[in-house]
Structures are given as structure tokens and as C-alpha cells.
Amino acid sequence: MFEALLGNGLILKKIIESIKELVTEVNFEVTSEAISLQAMDASHVALVVLVLRASEFEEYRCDRPQTLGVSITNLAKLLKIAGNDDSIILRAEDEAHVLTLVFTGKNNEKMCEFNLNLLTLDSEHLGIPEQEYSAEVTMSSSEFSRICRELTQVTDTLNLSVDKESVKFAVSGDIGTGSITMKANNSDKSEEKLILNVSDTVSMAFALRYLNLFNKASSLSDEVVLSLSPEVPVVLKFAFDLGELKYFLAPKIAE
């Protein structure tokens, strides 16, 4: 038996909204420690890694580890029915064929219960080594989201350069070229603050289309941490009370 009660159901709604355009069918691994998932997008360019810690749920029980194959598209449809103030219970019997979702209103005035049919999915688990990155950028998630969105109007590729003092977001398109440079600072204003942890200068190119999809998670966390090393995928990490959502994106290489 697996059962998890989340008092703040909105966070689950936001998580699923943040991944549904990247991955449509995923295996959730449930254990006594956590609910987790790892899934690549269809083109194998981006990877989503989610961990929700059991200890952060109001109630949590998992008698034996289980893999739950879920259509994210259909889960998103059901979660749309849950109110923003609702609590959410996730429940599955051992060797389950359905995932039960129970949404309960704040004053217990209304309860919705749905059984989502589970899928049997092949999983493609990537072995991602723990590694030290050359540069780590911690900045406002909404500011990063805004920069990516605005630069998308110029072209589809973001050139990201980080040195010890600043980070530069540069683009080059048919209409011209441009860049936005932000200097490391410890401003009191969260949208201005930028922390750099750089051992080596890096300069890499990434598809803005994917970064824009990742930035849907900016509703989950005020900060985003970008980890960069030459010639390996960039990691965008959004941490929140319940756990963390990480996105990996393979860099673009010059032809």
C-alpha cells in the first residue's frame, strides 16, 4: 500500500504543469523515502528529474517500493479539477493498476475521488554521474525566465557565458545581435540578486525553446540554480519545501 497526503495540493498541480509539455508518460518510483521520477523528452535532448521527500508530506506510507506508470497528460487533466486550496491524497494498492487521487476542500465541504489508469512503460534511466561544475549561477527564477522569453524574440539559441564577475546571455539572429550581462551582486531585492560560484570560465549554447519550458517551474521556487561545465548538459535546479525539480539540457555544438 502506498498513500501520501499533501496538505498544499497546489504544489503538485504546479509540478505537473511544469513538466507536462516535456514528458507525457513517466514512471513514478515510490519508496518509503520519496516519490521520484526521471524521464527524457521525446527527442532525448532534455531530462526531467523530480524528487519529493516523504518526510515533507503530512502523511506518508509506502509498504513496498513500486513503479507507477502514469500518463502526465491525463494526470494534469485530473489535477485541473482540484482546487488551489485542496489537499491531495495519492493512493495505490500493491501491484496497482490504478492511482487513486482524492481532492478535499479546505473545510471538508467537497471531496473528489478519481482513479487514474496506470500504464506499463519502458523506462530509459540515464546514469548521471555526480560531478563538480565549472560554474554555478544562482539567480531569481522569474528574472531568468523573463530573459529567456525576451531573447526568444531574437533567435532560438542562447549563448551563455559565465566568468567570475558576471553572466552574459547573448543571442544572434536575422534581426541582429545582442546580449544581457548581469554582474554578481548580493542585492536585497531578490530579482536583482545573482550569486556566482565559478572555478573556470564557461561559454555554451542552448536551445531557448527548452529553457522556456523549464522556466514553467519558476512558480515553484523564487530561485533557479544553473550548473555549467563545458561540453556537458546544463542543470537547472528549482528547490522547494517538498523536494526539487531538476532539468538537464544537452548543449548545442557548432557544426
Binding site: 527527442s43 530509459e124 540515464l126 539559441t157
Partner: peptide, 14 residues
């Protein structure tokens, strides 16, 4: 235009 790499070029499947 730069080419987009694939994640499997960086990480092995387990």
C-alpha cells in the same frame, strides 16, 4: 546554426 546534442551522448543508460 549549432547542432543540438542528445543526452545519450553524455550519459549511459542504466
Amino acid at each position: 546554426t549549432p547542432l543540438q546534442n542528445s543526452l545519450s551522448e553524455f550519459y549511459s543508460c542504466v
